[in-house]
Amino acid sequence: MSIIKIRRTNCIVAVFNDDEVLMGALRKSREKGYGIIEVFTPFPVHGIERVLGVKRSNLGVAAFAFGCIGLLFGLSLTGYTNTFDWPMNIGGKPIWPLLSFMPILFECTVLITALGMVATYLCISRLAPGVIPVIYEPRSTADKFVVLLEIDSRADEIRNNMKAWGVEELRDDVHVDHNMPFPIPFKLK
């Protein structure tokens, strides 16, 4: 699978040791208007979405859509097989007994929703098959908190401020390669 490089941004990798320090630095960076491309944490940090200004995902809308598709799938499956293609009279019940199809409709809805949500989640989390994950700092999977900061004309100011706000390590030899086969659906700014 060929990988298209869409965006190439110069940035620095800031490594933090503590989540409270990280949150403080992020808060101040947002105030100053620095471009934060991505944050990697070893565990979910509560309230970080609010600090970064990430909007709540619309995963629920996707779930509802997949649920509707699943319900329609169940309706057409039961309706076609048991009512139109080969009508069956079971115990004198109606020819399209919605009530006895309810388990099937329910399970179809749940199945399609679950599978669809997994697919949606993999897509928007950039975990599609064939993607080689870019690891900016291997220790972000162990005990370090890693921030990718976009370098613009204020590079020196960003470096100095980061040091003042408690960064443990700064590396500026990295650029971001978004090697996704399709455009990235969202951007952190």
Binding site: G91, K93, L99, S100, M102, P103
Partner: peptide, 12 residues
Amino acid sequence: WVSQYLLIWYAN
């Protein structure tokens, strides 16, 4: 509720 109703309705 449906579990109870469905079986009673179906078995009759």
